[in-house]
Amino acid sequence: MSEEENKAIVRRVNDEVWNMGNLEAIDELIADDFVTTVIGAPEQIRGPDGFRDFVLMYRKAFPDLRLTIDDQIAEGETVVTRWTATGTHEGELMGIPPTGKQATTAGININRISGGQLVDGWGIFDQLGLLQQIGAVPVATQV
């Protein structure tokens, strides 16, 4: 597949899975042996079921989650995606009760695509900022 097609696969994951909550698309877009590392997460996300659980955790906490791709760079099978996500905290997130507050975070994912599916990845996003915005971590005003 071309680099543009690989970028389109990642855009489909963002639009259909993250934004529209179409979890059935995961089986089409995520490889059975998919493994991704999210920095700060206690363990790697593995396979379509692991990815589904990860998406569900955030979509339950932020039902109106909107993820926007700010930039994409592709080289061979690798696609780098810089994104911004906004959502309203209406469900429990990792034990943090809902606050009704809107939060915005940003991150970068690096994915390898093969045969029209994400096969592995690495991601990092501003988890501290997200927790600060929903009041789970205090915001330091002075050092």
């Binding site: 809107q102 915005t104 501290l128 915005q133 915001v139 330091a140």
Partner: peptide, 8 residues
Amino acid sequence: IPQPAHMP
């Protein structure tokens, strides 16, 4: 200390 770029 890192500050969030957005706040509610």
